[in-house]
Design a protein around this nucleic acid. Structure first.
Length: 275
DNA sequence: CTGTTCTCCTGTGGGC
DNA sequence: TGCCCACAGGAGAACA
């Protein structure tokens, strides 16, 4: 499932192929996504030139002079690029819900089997969009630090894992990286958020940053897969310490990795190493 | 305001 | 080998 590193890799994969180009057609085969694709999206985008491509949380933001194209990959979404000379550009397959066609024949294709993703248009500044307005700091930027995290957590009674997955606390930390960073920091996912010390927040912040950065670096090797590829673009195999490894040996102490459910989500941890 | 539950959807995997 | 069904999961919405 696309976590923040996959979204960042997707951004880097598509940006060089669409930036500065003009959209000549938008084909919507399936408008029923997380929210309906705007019925007039094709008209809205026609003739529009891509001014920039950015990422905010797990949202991809493609800026035009007259508004913003917002793309979310949900949990099974992906984007791929086809060059004009690739005949597959004209041969969409199952779950290929949208095509963005550019003046040079480049096609950016949105594929999403589970349709938890979204493609939206907003004629305004990103910071005013309801989905983007209340997002917390980016995990890889300086605004996300031990003091910031401690300030937010020390008033909260919920489990620290739930707090980490809350976009108001920090964006882009999904179930996988919440589990992994808590393991690396030696903190139990059950700990009440307000029980964390500044030092523990510091460790947690550091591990969140390094684990995300490492995954983004791993994604860099898959960038070529965005163009004319057969496989799923932007997805890459990651080695996880505890995620999905219940019953296996803890990489630190050799004990058994446990699984519980917190807030309805699978939580993986080592009961010895994480206190 | 806080905490919990529901919802969208389909591929996957376990059980038999 | 095939069938059936529970399950996973991001994150907003609805509800208590």
């Amino acid at each position: 499932m696309p976590e923040l590193p996959e979204v960042e890799t997707t951004l880097r994969g598509i940006e060089p192929h669409i930036n500065g180009k003009t959209i000549t057609a938008t084909v919507v085969r399936q408008a029923k996504l997380r929210w309906p694709v705007p019925p007039d999206l094709a008209d809205t985008l026609a003739g529009g030139k891509v001014l920039s491509c950015q990422r905010r949380a797990k949202y991809l933001l493609i800026r035009f002079a007259h508004g913003l194209l917002i793309i979310h990959l949900g949990m099974s979404g992906s984007l791929r690029i086809f060059t004009a000379d690739d005949r597959r550009a004209a041969l969409p397959e199952k779950h290929d819900h949208l095509d963005f066609v550019f003046h040079d024949g480049t096609v950016m294709r949105f594929h999403d089997p589970r349709r938890f993703g979204a493609v939206l248009w907003f004629a305004g500044a990103a910071e005013h969009h309801p989905l983007l307005a209340r997002l917390g700091p980016e995990p890889l930027e300086a605004g996300f630090n031990a003091d910031d995290l401690y300030q937010k957590l020390h008033t909260q009674k919920r489990a620290v894992k739930l707090a980490l997955m809350d976009n108001a606390v920090v964006v882009g930390v999904g179930n996988i990286y919440a589990n992994e960073s808590l393991f690396l920091a030696g903190i139990s996912p059950f700990r009440v958020a307000n029980s964390l010390s500044v030092a523990e927040c510091n460790a947690l912040v550091a591990h969140i940053k390094t684990v995300l950065q490492r995954a983004i670096a791993a994604g860099g090797s898959t960038l070529r897969d965005f163009v004319n590829s057969d496989g799923k673009s932007g997805y890459f195999q990651q080695q996880y310490a505890v995620y999905g490894r219940q019953g296996e040996a803890c990489p630190q102490c050799g004990g058994l990795v446990c699984k519980s459910v917190i807030g309805g989500r699978g939580s993986f941890y080592c009961p010895v190493c994480q206190q």
